[in-house]
Design a protein around this nucleic acid. Structure first.
Lengths: 224, 224
DNA sequence: GGCCAAGTGGAACGCGCGTTCCGGATATGG
DNA sequence: CCATATCCGGAACGCGCGTTCCACTTGGCC
């Protein structure tokens, strides 16, 4: 039952360098885990990940004592990616568009916030620290837009994170059946941040799509 | 493996009246299922429900051939409740506040949209029909506010449903640690619908709360 | 080339959960 | 009060999945 490991919190092997083949396998494992968790959330099985990485199950457990540790490594990578997106936005994007572009890029990054919004066992505050380390830079992005007058002053960095989670949740629930549902929702939600609105650029979800939205397994093929 | 039953889609026993004790048990089962699914989503176990209903597991399977059928019954009840809320809002609430009050009441209704946003197996289009039957009345509520000029004209009934799902998702993810997170998010999201905004009435999520938001099981007791 | 620590794969185990099954209990009509 | 159709409880089964374990392979150093 996914107890928290104390012996080697995926800091590899305590310092000694890995054998070359092991290093390659490790990279493949993390990459596969990123993709599989992004697709199926935390419920993805270790076997799926092993198959995708073309590796035995034992290999997974050599580097990561428990599933939670592997997931934590993926979340760490996602955190880093998010920080990078924020930095890019600060460097490239004009202040009026900063928050909006930041949110859009986070949603677009395939493995950034996808895995992050799925339920998972407690992992000792690791993500707590990761998220906390992200808030200042998100704050900078937000402040830029607030200074430019395109975002309200009563919004906080945590609101941006909650917004990201909500869009991700809508994407998880709807996008398989209603491909642009999350983008349209994003339009509306971002307008909740703006002092003045613009019309949404994505078309509404259809009723037919909506009916299929909440189911996941064992359904007949989509036909419209 | 939760196959779809064909023999008695929880239409009770094909018409013959139930024994009195059986009828009481059935009511307790549905009520317990509503509460437990609302708390834990579809992942709640049949045993949990049986215990809450103070009934044996066999009793569950007598009326509902599979877990999916029991869940479907709960969703049907939730659909009915939602329709009732919409009717009440149309009768009691002034048009300018209609959509907003509708969404707030749906979120506040403990067993209304809570279970509805959890992932579950496909159940033969049953919920597709249920949701479709709800859209017209939601449309009436929405049209009322649009006519009053408090909701944009480019919003559709399905947007309201997606909004409900997103708020529900935020509540599921955050509210255990940040009790008002979903209410604050609701404020912001509703402002995405309004032509002009009002400041949010709920305070932002704290960073400390946020770090705990995405985990579910086996965590240390909350301490702030 | 030969040694062996490091690494690997996958069978097997334990557990939780959905589901089945059936011996016993109970309501209800006569 | 009896007969019996109906209903109930919960043990048992099968399966999926996280995890463990160990016989076998391989890269790196002498």
């Amino acid at each position: 039952m996914a107890r928290q490991s104390t012996k080697d919190p995926d800091g590899l092997t305590g310092g000694r360098p890995l054998r070359r083949d092991a290093e390659q396998n490790l990279a493949r494992v993390v990459s596969a885990a990123r993709d599989v968790f992004a697709e199926h959330g935390y419920e993805a099985s270790m076997e799926q990940i092993a198959v995708r990485a073309d590796v035995g199950i034992g290999t997974l457990y050599r580097r990561f004592p428990a599933k939670a540790d592997l997931f934590a490594a993926v979340v760490d990578a996602a955190t880093e990616r998010t920080r990078m997106i924020a930095d890019e936005v600060l460097a490239e994007v004009a202040p009026p568009d900063a928050v909006f572009e930041f949110v859009r890029r986070c949603i677009a990054a395939p493995s950034c916030w996808r895995a992050t919004t799925s339920r998972r066992p407690w992992n000792g505050g690791r993500e707590e620290r990761a998220l906390a380390s992200l808030l200042p830079v998100i704050g900078q992005v937000l402040t830029a837009s607030q200074g430019a007058g395109t975002a309200r002053d009563d919004i906080r960095p945590t609101d941006v994170v909650v917004l990201l989670m909500s869009v991700r949740a809508v994407a998880d629930l709807c996008d398989a059946d209603a491909p642009a549902a999350s983008l349209r929702f994003l339009d509306l939600a971002l307008d909740g941040i703006r002092p003045s609105q613009t019309p949404p650029t994505h078309s509404p979800v259809t009723a037919r799509q909506l009916g299929r939205v909440l189911t996941t397994r064992q359904r007949p093929p989509r036909s419209g």
